[in-house]
């Protein structure tokens, strides 16, 4: 095993081009577990912790450009107002020590369906910026996840940043775990209301081979709110609307039974989380008037 430690982004991209089988490591919260338990012996480790630009966030055409190496702790401390859904999700990641090291880019790189950041990012309709010596490309997050723990990165590419539009409406994130801290999600749900374009964003975690959006649920809710004029009136949300939304979210999932939970519970809990989080988001929306 070799340890590569580029000092700049261009060096990192060159290293990745030269060694496409190199495993990038930042916070180490996934990679080191694989190493410690002998589940993986990569030929190269590509350390990304010496690349300052990866650890910064900035504005980019009205969006937040979040460097792939920004930790969850910093998202919570610095971006709670700009990226509320992601900050709520970040607070549920592992433990304080994990949040101090783990990065949002790492969550994408691992592409586990259980990654906590995914539902919040999907709901916020984030894009991901991938780079290689060949150039840079941006793609919607929905196109990034390609399978269980697989993503759209080419062998020579690294994740540079995540681009997220600050919200025009409330966001929520909920996650089911069987204890009150340090737990991998059994199921998770992210919700964003986009009142400026009368749209709804969703994200489902741990209930399909990849994180995914519940498009039909989004469309159903956006249209129902529109049809009832609720975006404008901000009147009370009819309970059956929230319930129906929950059912749509449930239908969007294709969960499995595993050691953490059953498929039927995952489906059920998604419906409940969707309904509840919508009611909270709607209360926020009404209060914000």
């Amino acid at each position: 095993m070799d340890f590569l430690q580029p000092r700049s982004w261009s060096e990192a991209l060159e290293a990745k081009a030269a060694h496409p089988d190199a495993v990038p490591i930042a916070g180490g919260t996934d990679v080191m577990v694989e190493l410690n338990f002998d589940h993986h012996r990569p030929a190269f480790l590509l350390d990304l912790t010496r690349i300052e630009e990866l650890e910064t966030w900035s504005f980019d055409n009205g969006r937040v450009r979040l460097g792939a190496g920004v930790t969850y702790s910093r998202v919570i401390d610095e971006l709670g107002r700009l990226l509320p859904g992601l900050a709520m999700a970040s607070r549920t990641v592992g433990s304080p020590q994990i949040r101090n090291r783990g990065t949002v880019g790492g969550n994408l790189g691992a592409a586990s369906p259980a990654g906590d950041a995914h539902p919040a990012l999907l709901a916020a309709e984030a894009d991901v910026e991938l780079a290689s010596v060949r150039g840079t490309r941006r793609l919607p997050l929905t196109e990034f996840y390609t399978g269980v723990k697989r993503n759209a990165l080419a062998p020579d590419e690294l994740i540079a940043a995540i681009l997220i539009t600050p919200p025009s409406g409330p966001q929520q994130f909920c996650k089911i775990g069987t204890r009150n801290a340090m737990v991998i999600s059994v199921s998770a749900f992210g919700l964003a209301l986009h009142p400026e374009r009368k749209a709804v964003g969703t994200g489902i975690g741990s209930a399909a081979p990849t994180p995914r959006r519940a498009y039909e649920a989004e469309n159903f809710l956006a249209q129902a709110l529109d049809a009832a004029g609720l975006w404008e009136t901000r009147a009370t949300m009819p309970p059956e609307l929230a319930r129906e939304f929950g059912n749509y979210v449930r239908s969007a999932a294709s969960p499995i039974d595993d050691v953490r939970g059953t498929a039927s519970y995952r489906s059920h809990s998604l419906a409940v989380m969707a309904r509840r989080s919508l009611s909270w988001a709607w209360d926020d929306y009404r209060r914000a008037a």
Binding site: Q172, K175, N180, A181
Partner: peptide, 16 residues
């Protein structure tokens, strides 16, 4: 949140 089932995972604000 910390005193509720689910804790900071934000699954209930008292409902249920």
């Amino acid at each position: 949140l910390l005193s509720l089932p689910g804790g900071v995972s934000n699954t209930t604000h008292g409902e249920g």
